[in-house]
Nucleic acid binder design. Structure first.
Lengths: 196, 196
DNA sequence: TGTTATACGGAGGATGCCTCCGTTTATCAA
DNA sequence: TTGATAAACGGAGGCATCCTCCGTATAACA
């Protein structure tokens, strides 16, 4: 967590910063059009840089995802704070999960980023993961304290479950899946309440 | 659905039948070891046939999956019949879903086959899809008739939801995920009951 | 046993992943 | 301004698939 007092060496090169930006923009566009599995060479091409440059900035596909969707994760994180402050526990939890679904539905590729954040590789790409876990954790703890949901289910488990639901529909390409998933998330939250 | 009265031309060549069998066996082994994304060329190699032969018998990866895991799907289908005849509605539904989870957990690659069966490409690879839908449909209809579960959720939706849950954990590689998923499926079923 | 429909096999074109390293360039100090 | 040099660039190239195509081999049938 410590923000290493970096070597005060040189300041970063201007072309490096510019290319990083170009890559992020291109990646957003390419993933948006072609899904999270789109070719990284296509991203580099779209950014107008060499493939080597892409890999230098983002050593893995996952790293690129995390960077591209960082902003959206922050939105969700902020939303959790707001909801926790203004809305009854169970309702807050429900709304936040629905918002997560919404975001994943809107931004193609976002789902992959969220799955990353909820899944195993958490140690490697920690930032988004931390934010999401913290957000979910707050809401779950609050609902639990209010006795609104069962206690034998961690925030992490809940989050991954919901993302799993989304993923199943997302990948199926069923038109209008959003409404269905909304309903399923409600069922799931009902289930969490049932065992309280 | 009509089983085309095939042209009474020749009988199929013996080598063709044999190779098909070899491919299925090899595929089972290779998918089991390497997961559902394993190389098809590896399968052909393991079967001792050319890659062209593999593609002639199974034009897509999905077709191969469906063929490999057909037997397992039939088991699930049979189980549904048994449970429907011997167990109270809600309990039967719950047990069948858990059995599905179990199977997906045991046989690597099975999950991919089930997802296929539950997902969009149903028209193309209909057999497994039909069996699964029928099995789930029976149990859901029965539970619904008994007033044990809410009515605004189709069997298909339920099945896909559960497979989504499994998939999220399966892909994360968390050790011991089976127990967690079992618990989550229970939560989900509780949720279905809650809205009855 | 000859004819022929069928099936076989693998070369080959295409795409994508990722690494490596010779070349270019932005920064900084003189 | 002008080197010197650390840092970044780019893309060729090795490897792994995917899938198609078509010349060759062979099982079925008469």
């Amino acid at each position: 967590m410590v923000q290493d007092a970096e070597k005060p060496s040189r300041k970063p090169r201007a072309d490096s910063i510019r290319n990083r930006e170009l890559l992020l923009e291109a990646a957003k566009a390419v993933f948006s059009a072609g899904g999270s599995g789109a070719s990284l060479e296509a991203v580099a091409r779209a950014a107008g840089v060499g493939i080597g440059t892409l890999y230098r900035h983002f050593p893995t596909r996952d790293a690129l995802f995390e960077a591209v969707y960082r902003r959206e994760v922050e939105q969700l994180s902020d939303l959790a704070v707001t909801l926790a402050a203004t809305t009854p526990p169970e309702e807050a939890l429900r709304r936040w999960l629905q918002a997560t679904v919404e975001l994943a539905a809107t931004k193609k590729g976002m789902l992959a980023a969220l799955e990353l954040a909820a899944e195993g590789r958490a140690e490697l790409y920690a930032y988004s993961s931390d934010r999401m876990q913290a957000a979910a954790g707050t809401l779950v703890a609050r609902a639990r304290a209010a006795g609104a949901i069962r206690a034998d289910l961690s925030a992490e488990e809940m989050l991954r479950a919901v993302l799993g639901l989304v993923g199943a529909w997302y990948r199926s390409g069923t038109p209008g899946w959003q409404d269905t998933v909304r309903r399923l998330v409600d069922v799931f939250v009902d289930g969490m309440r049932a065992g309280a």
